[in-house]
């Protein structure tokens, strides 16, 4: 199964945007994480933007960056949103409210608590009516999102926008899930074409023949291990460096996703 990568979006501390981060990811500039300003997510109408959660703004921001690079009309593109815990900030507020005697839940907060909130807001912002999935596979949510996206592209022969995101989990929920830094990445995947930034071939392998691919830079490797969405870093780093590389992502305890990456030098 082979797909082309038509656009990339990225947002994390020290990685503000795909184009701005390529040299860092390729290893030619040092990685220096600084706090990320609230993402613009310019696509959102201002009234929706005001009400939106951090997750929504991060997810839509990278989605918009990837789709702009592809030149595709967002209304023609299906989406897959992959996140381990989804709206953890909203869930924290909800559970605090539900622990109080009155339990007065805000209706807006409630409809923002679903795992497909970012998917819904993307639809509102773009008026896209194509299929959209939101999924989770704990630490392997990015790999599961890739699996869903690549099978969709290959079976339907249509483009898919994959958006992977997990934000820092607020206290006290962070005691249960210590994700300390936000990370969002988007990949526009489509049948390979002349305009592909790179192509990749996917296969499933038994686990533990080789370790999942890591990163050379210890600070970046720490980010990869801390945030499920940052499991996308080895792939992004290979694309940025223009390397032909086989990237192994773990998929649960039993399998690995092997991505044979082929950079397109055009």
């Amino acid at each position: 199964m082979k797909v082309g990568i038509q656009g990339i979006g990225l947002l994390a501390a020290g990685l503000e945007g795909w184009c701005a981060s390529r040299a860092v990811l390729a290893g030619t500039e040092p990685f220096g994480p600084v706090a990320v300003p609230d993402p613009e997510a310019a696509l959102l109408p201002s009234n929706e933007r005001r009400r939106s959660s951090d997750c929504v703004r991060w997810a839509l921001h990278v989605a918009q960056e990837a789709i702009a690079q592809s030149g595709l009309d967002p209304r023609e593109v299906s989406t897959v949103f992959a996140s381990s815990g989804g709206e953890t900030g909203v869930l924290d507020t909800l559970c605090r409210t539900l622990a109080m005697p009155e339990r007065v839940v805000s209706p807006t907060l409630f409809h923002q608590s679903v795992h497909n909130t970012a998917s819904g807001y993307w639809g509102i912002a773009t008026t896209c009516q194509q299929s959209s999935t939101a999924l989770s596979c704990y630490d392997d949510s990015f790999a599961a999102g890739l699996l869903e996206s690549i099978t969709f592209v290959c079976v339907e022969q249509r483009p898919v926008l994959l958006v992977a995101y997990d934000l820092a989990v607020p206290a006290p929920l962070s005691e249960a899930r210590p994700i300390t830094t936000g990370f969002a990445a988007a990949l526009l995947l489509a049948p390979p074409s002349d305009s592909s930034l790179a192509t990749m071939q996917l296969r499933l392998d038994e686990a533990h023949q080789d370790e999942p691919t890591g990163l050379v830079d210890p600070a970046l490797e720490q980010v990869r291990q801390n945030n499920p969405a940052a499991r996308s870093l080895p792939l992004l780093s290979a694309i940025a460096a223009g390397r032909s590389q086989s990237i192994r992502l773990s998929l649960l305890d039993s399998q690995q996703l092997v991505l044979d990456l082929d950079p397109c030098r055009n």
Binding site: S132, S136, C137
Partner: peptide, 11 residues
Amino acid sequence: LRGPAMVVSTA
């Protein structure tokens, strides 16, 4: 089971 797995959560 040891095949691919995921949870879809679209409300």
